[in-house]
């Protein structure tokens, strides 16, 4: 190699080194400006996480000095376990998950309750199955997911109305709706905000009428998704917790505001590319009614009585060995 070429290569090397240093430094500065936290959702990106996505996309987290990695959940992902393992600082879990975890010594606290009414309902065909009260379950085939919270809710409903298990047929439910479409099962569990518009569209196409059973209407108040964090996080970083929950609740309020309907739909569609827009348009108002029962409802309010009932249901079904004093877990850092 000639000395001139060597010199040239030296300059190139120095230039690359210089720009690498500048790039790394600027990255560090940006990272220092915002506190990084991870937020593990309960389920995949869909209408049930519209507020979480909104807070991320529309800058609510950033405005509160946070850089939040919003991670989708799924059947194998458990936010509470991730909190304990330090992979996430905040998460979404259902009340039964929270109570089960606490009964096994998991140090977690509840910051906000997302759904005020549990979205889990049972769909049925009024033309085939008459339903006025849970007594009408007698002699019918009712779908439940063994081990799932729909089993717990259905058993609580049956116990409340003194219906014995041998007075109806319980059917083991899977992701596949064929047994319901075929009429083998009379009542099928689904999430009324996310799944009902899709299933309803298929039934409508087949010229069938459908309706829903809400356990909430019959006095079963089993809490669904809530925002949780570890007790350590809650006690050692109260400012971060407060900023996170402030940003999140702001995001949810804005996303559920009917005035922001179009932007909320756009936000969902950016992350959930599988669901058609027409379905999302039907899903959003249902989600709004489950989370904001009234326009001035304080979003995220923790319904302590419903949590207490959830704990009692789990105790009565031996899902937890002893009470966990659920009221001690409910720690809303009111923004």
């Amino acid at each position: 190699m000639r000395p001139q070429q060597r010199k040239k290569l030296g300059y190139i090397f120095l230039a690359v080194l210089f720009f690498t240093c500048i790039y790394s430094f600027s990255g560090e500065v940006l990272a220092q400006e915002k506190e990084e936290v991870a937020y593990r959702l309960k389920w995949l990106f869909n209408v049930s996480v519209v507020g979480d996505l909104w807070a991320d996309v529309n800058g609510n987290f950033a405005a509160n000095g946070l850089q939040v990695a919003v991670k989708p959940g799924g059947p194998e992902r458990d936010a509470i376990k991730e909190l304990e393992l330090g992979r996430a600082q905040f998460g979404v879990a259902s009340a039964d998950q929270v109570i089960r975890a606490v009964s096994k010594g998991s140090p977690i606290v509840v910051l906000a309750q997302l759904f005020q009414t549990n979205p889990l309902h049972w769909i049925y065909r009024p033309a085939k199955s008459h339903f006025k009260s849970p007594a009408d379950f007698k002699g019918q085939t009712v779908g439940i997911t063994y081990g799932g919270n729909d089993e717990t809710i259905m058993r609580a409903l049956l116990a409340k109305y003194h219906i014995k298990e041998n007075e109806l047929n319980l059917f083991s439910v899977r992701y596949d709706y064929t047994p319901f479409y075929q009429g083998k099962v009379d009542f099928w569990p689904l999430y009324i905000n996310a799944q009902a518009p899709i299933i309803g569209a298929k039934l409508k196409k087949a010229g069938e009428q459908y309706s829903f059973v809400s356990p909430d209407d019959f006095g079963i108040r089993f809490v669904a998704n809530s925002v949780v964090t570890s007790r350590q996080m809650f006690e050692s970083r109260p400012d971060t917790v407060k900023r996170f929950i402030t940003a999140l609740i702001q995001g949810w309020r804005e996303a559920l505001d009917p005035a922001n309907n179009e932007r909320a739909i756009k936000t969902i569609l950016q992350s959930d590319k599988e669901t058609p827009e027409a379905i999302v348009r039907q899903q959003l108002p249902v989600t709004r009614s489950l989370m904001m029962p009234a326009p001035d409802f304080p979003f995220g309010k923790i319904d302590a009585a419903a949590w207490k009932q959830t704990e009692e249901i789990m105790l009565s079904q031996n899902l937890i060995p002893k009470p966990v004093n659920v009221e001690k877990l409910l720690k809303p850092p009111v923004p």
Partner: peptide
């Protein structure tokens, strides 16, 4: 080692 609860 990581002081994990019985839930994990």
């Amino acid at each position: 080692g990581l002081s994990l609860s019985d839930y994990v």
